[in-house]
């Protein structure tokens, strides 16, 4: 029962945060809404007994990605004139919704046909220890590949921001 109430509140935060994120004209507000979404998402992970994921979400998404985004937004200091001029027209929202609706519906249909339930899990589920055990026993190669990916992303972002090209 308590879980249901927490889920409902978190879900409300998630949806409102997401909608406001795509609605705000100013990028800073969007980023702050996104911060809200990320924190609520971390809460969802906690609700699912994923304690390590909760931690990682807070550390990486909230602490790194969103902060970095905010920092970029403020540092490049986009002027109001440089923002897109046109308002989002209701027509385009409507058309996009019609386009997206079948995708959502087909996923809904797939979900509703699933026959799964939450089972009782032992207390070690989702902890750092158990995750790292699995990670370093069965998932070593993907882990290494991801580290290379992070390295190349690092190099790539440095090179892109350093380059001077006339667009």
């Amino acid at each position: 029962m308590l879980e249901s109430i927490i889920f409902s509140i978190l879900a409300l935060f998630l949806v409102i945060g997401a909608i406001s994120m795509i609605s705000f004209k100013q990028s800073v507000y969007s980023a702050i809404s996104f911060l809200l979404v990320m924190i609520a998402m971390a809460g969802m992970f906690a609700l699912l007994h994923q304690s390590f994921l909760f931690l990682a979400q807070i550390l990486v998404s909230v602490g790194a990605v969103v902060t970095l985004s905010l920092m970029i937004i403020t540092s490049i200091n986009i002027k109001r004139d440089n923002l897109p001029k046109h308002r989002v027209s209701p027509k385009s929202i409507f058309l996009s919704s019609i386009l997206i609706l079948p995708i959502i519906l087909v996923i809904f249909k797939a979900i509703s046909s699933l026959d799964i339930k939450f089972v009782e899990v032992d207390s070690s589920f989702g902890t750092i220890q158990s995750i790292s055990t699995t990670l370093f026993s069965n998932w070593v190669l993907p882990f290494e590949i991801v580290s290379i990916l992070l390295l190349s992303a690092l190099i790539g972002s440095i090179i892109i921001s350093k380059r001077r090209l006339n667009l």
């Binding site: 996009s96 386009l99 997206i100 609706l101 079948p102 995708i103 519906l105």
Partner: peptide
């Protein structure tokens, strides 16, 4: 997205 929508 339109394509994906049609497939859906």
């Amino acid at each position: 997205i339109g394509g994906v929508s049609l497939i859906s």
